[in-house]
Design a protein around this nucleic acid. Structure first.
Lengths: 212, 212, 212, 212
DNA sequence: GATGAATGAGGTTTCATTCAT
DNA sequence: CATGAATGAAACCTCATTCAT
């Protein structure tokens, strides 16, 4: 995943990779274009042109433009959920696992900025039912993360005077916001930002009683 | 400002306040509708109907739909900038001023969720030049906030091993994200969320050497 | 008349002459703008701005935008009719008078290219009744010119094997066309073109029997 | 070409010929309507209704209303250029070829009055780049015609004391003007007008020294 | 599987004109 | 005489989607 952004990025210059299956090409093009100019500003015509595909082909694989957007969401959600599951199930002190998970979320986000940009900016363009599905999975994701915090609060490693929910939303707000300001060509690597964010996050949550 | 949401909110039920000047009515309706269904999904027709105004009247005051969006941004920016200036210029220990400013930003945001929702979701719909203007003012805002953190770092009140920039973006990410999950009708008051956020934020930033 | 183009021309650079009466300023601005970008492409707003006048003022003096166009036509027609009357009523051999009239028409046209451009290009934008009035006067003008040719044909100075009507329309077609290609800043003066046109015209019409 | 006007003309009464391809139907309808009421007064709605086509279909083939106008110009230009090339390349005394070409231009124009009416009246509605293209081709056309005159001047068949340019513009002015006054239902046939015009034109240009 | 011409509803914007002040 | 806010009809154009081939 760390090298995921490429496909879209290079495609801009070199045209769609014609060896990829049609649905993948469409998904790549959609991710890039929706991130660049927004869902509404991207016409189906531009989309299929960027993917090197005809309109008919697109409607063969996707029921609608909305559906294509939904497919983008599904791919992102699947990836996020899978990664988090790994950290949640790992061994070791909860504080370490939380830090690792937090840093990874940042790193992954930075490697897939297009997805993140789309995620929040275009949620409201999803039809009602698909929106509900996305929100449900997203909530599950947050709850899994929250579960780790609560675990730390129970063991006394993390302060318990702040609701875990608040901490989760604060952290993911910051993560989501990355797509607004982070520039891959800048000085800070994704790993570096991840380290800082995880540090601030855990410093904020650390129990006053915990030893340093 | 604490009671700012009124006009728009109530207008949904009671119709536009016909005693207000036309541009104000349009601005209120636009804020509400853009937040509710997004800029792209709001037609000019719906807009003017909600404002109790004709299309021609709208184009008499605003050059385009984009321009109306920009006007919404200008109002929000002016408000934010003004409030922050107050805290930056106040007396007292930097840590206290920073906490107060952070809590206030949250509180204010919660009181104007519509504005925030629009702010980040629809930035990309602004025409190039207006987008630049908004970004410029927004950057100035961030820099002022960063300045307070740097002041704390210089005096030793705040840890200096994390770039102030990182702290700022992390915090504002969380604030911006409020519009995604905060519900005014829920249990948490804006003030309560503000207190928690400010607490986590400052705990994360507090210098290890500082006395508690 | 020879120096008529000035008002409009200079106004472009210096703004409307605010010492002129309002209707004149409107007429000048209209002539210039209608010629530059066409009647349809000129909005009433631009018109009044160019004339340094408010919309209300314009509607005080002119019933409609159409009416302003009509006023332009009236001014041109009056000028043309008056000049031709002079040549028709003059003394001397018909051939000389015809040549002088022909040359003068060209010269005058060249000095008022804007008017000519409007005349033919925007005729179809006039409302039915005003169009009829313009056509009527224009026909009278042509008939007066035709009368001079017929006079020459009766006296034997001009060939009679071509209908006078044909000769008239051929000549005025050429004159009207001037606005398409003539450039005041070019080498040919209006007088020079007038001389050439008159020469070709009369050479074409001269009776084979006439002495040279 | 002599029977070109039909399609459009009859279509007014019988409706669009639904066996013709959509672009042709649009071109016919556009030619007729632009000539009848002018480009600006013809709405896209009327246009597609007259062509028996939907708006979407029109925009499938033509980028804009302007583009449709341009297509009309292209068709006319192609036709004119082709015909003139024939006369220029023919054998025989230059005077005869010139007379034949002149008469043919008139005849052709009379057979396609709609095109001519549009040509000059709506030139200014073309976007800048397309206007330039039209002017360029038109200039080439004039230059070819001028070349024939110059040939006559070199051989002594035509008088050389009038610039060929002047003669060309005078003649084409008259031709263009035909759309203003010529009525197909009148007494004069296109051939008759062509003969008269060619006669006047050549009589005006004939060298005084040339034998009759 | 894939095509691309055609649909038609709906979008934003313009603009001549009116009218209360 | 003059203003300029407001009107409202109509303009051009876009675009997701369908369907005969």
């Amino acid at each position: 995943m760390d090298d995921h952004t490429d496909g879209g990025g290079r495609a801009a210059a070199t045209g769609p990779d014609r060896t990829l299956p049609v649905p993948d090409r469409l998904l790549s093009a959609a991710t890039r274009l929706f991130a660049e100019r927004g869902f509404e500003r991207t016409s189906v015509q531009e989309l299929v042109a960027a993917a090197g595909v005809t309109k008919g082909a697109m409607y063969h694989y996707f029921a609608s433009k909305d559906d294509l957007l939904y497919a983008v969401y599904q791919r992102v959600l699947a990836m996020q959920t899978e990664r988090l599951a790994g950290f949640a199930a790992a061994e070791g002190p909860i504080e370490d696992r939380l830090r690792a998970a937090a840093a990874d979320v940042v790193h992954t986000t930075v490697d897939n900025l297009d997805d993140t940009r789309i995620f929040f900016r275009s949620l409201h363009m999803l039809p009602e039912d698909k929106l509900a599905a996305v929100r449900k999975e997203r909530r599950a994701y947050h709850e899994r993360f929250r579960g780790m915090i609560e675990e730390g609060q129970r063991t006394g490693a993390l302060r318990a005077d702040v609701p875990a929910d608040i901490a989760v939303t604060q952290f993911f707000g910051a993560v989501h916001h990355l797509s607004t300001w982070y520039r891959p060509e800048g000085e800070l690597s994704g790993a570096a930002v991840g380290a800082y964010f995880a540090d601030l996050f855990l410093a904020g949550l650390r129990s006053p009683d915990a030893a340093r």
